[in-house]
Design a protein around this nucleic acid. Structure first.
Lengths: 203, 203
DNA sequence: CTACTTGTCTACCAACCGGTAGAGGTGCAT
DNA sequence: ATGCACCTCTACCGGTTGGTAGACAAGTAG
């Protein structure tokens, strides 16, 4: 029919699959659902990917590359050590703004087990190492409160992903009185939280 | 056959369903899977609950009651204001220790949307209000850093649930070098994090 | 003994699942 | 024009899904 061309189609399949997997979960998403979102028949998916699992792997790799790229771009601007963490948070929130299902997909990746998450995070490995080194250096210089840097990184991760994915909880906790917190407000909250987590005990 | 009796059977169905829904997600769990876990045929489930959705509602209500009870018991012991938060964290971790799928089910509840999460959290509503009041009082007295108490509560929630559910991430971030962090160690990390989040800026 | 309630079961259904087989259309190189 | 690689499709398969219909066993009250 329309012959959209191979690589372009492949990318659009992966993008829609990430949306569906993030929204409904991998196991609860049928190939038909993804195909309908792309605007194509299920068998076209199976032409590009031998089976559902291969499609998932492609999504995991692509997602890792996407977030890696976003963070790299954010850190390319010359940053003072103080603003680095906030720049990363901002980049992730920007990504979530124009791709709301993305954070949910990341959480789904971790839910699917170590293998799936490793495939997602493999690209991010060097950035993780640099982040740990950055945190350790900051601790040695006294700019960051002394603690296990890996655990600190994990705590920051859960805070960011939590603010981005637990919308139901946020509404329930903040209560019906206040208007539902916008992404912008949540980013401010996360940033202030990150500052508190990094700040040394005495100012 | 064995006629285990109505209410007992009903409870065991709900418990196993929480396990399955937490482990695999609601949409990806079949009634047959739950039935097999209980040791009974699918139609027996449908005798107690008219359909899958009704079973989910029962699970949400039961889960809310369980965590509410655990927290209530933890706070019954006379606590100093300083140890209250840690007592709640400890109670939740104890619950997770002997019921590992429980935190995952809570996260699944939030993933299923506001209606589902409301059903879970309805029982917890008065405790939420008391917690906010407690935090506000602490802020007024200068024992807790001034911030939006509802947002603080949400941040604490995401931290606890994150440490309990994101095992894959934890292993990936902490790295293969160290042994995987035990629940006990994670509880210590969460508690120290909670302290940092509550602590006023100058000691 | 009989009638009724409660609980568990077998048998079945239409819809949907992931995946296979293969026809056919389109554009490009020869 | 012809062959071929690329892409999308229809048709189908065996297995699983949530759910219905109803048989049957066991306790219980009269």
């Amino acid at each position: 029919m329309s012959r959209t061309g191979g690589e372009k189609r492949r990318r659009s399949i992966v993008e829609e699959a990430i949306r569906c997997f993030g929204r409904d979960g991998y196991n609860a998403t049928s190939l038909d659902t993804v195909a309908k979102a792309v605007g194509v028949r299920k068998q076209t998916l199976l032409y590009y990917f031998p089976n559902k699992d291969a499609l998932l792997e492609a999504c995991l790799t692509a997602a890792g590359a996407t977030v890696g790229e976003a963070i790299t771009v954010a850190l390319e601007q010359k940053q003072t050590p103080e603003t680095k963490a906030e720049a990363v948070v901002h980049a992730v929130f920007e990504l979530a703004k124009e791709f709301p299902e993305f954070p949910m997909f990341v959480r789904e990746a971790s839910r699917l087990g170590p293998d799936a998450f490793d495939r997602f995070s493999k690209v991010l490995e060097p950035m993780r190492e640099r982040a740990v080194a950055f945190l350790e250096a900051g601790m040695d210089e006294g700019n960051i409160r002394k603690q296990d840097p890996a655990m600190l990184l994990f705590t920051l991760y859960t805070a960011v992903i939590g603010y981005l994915t637990e919308a139901s909880v946020l509404n329930a906790v903040v209560g019906p009185g206040k208007s539902r917190a916008s992404l912008r407000r949540r980013e401010k909250e996360v940033v202030s939280f990150v500052r508190a987590a990094l700040a040394p005990p005495a100012a």
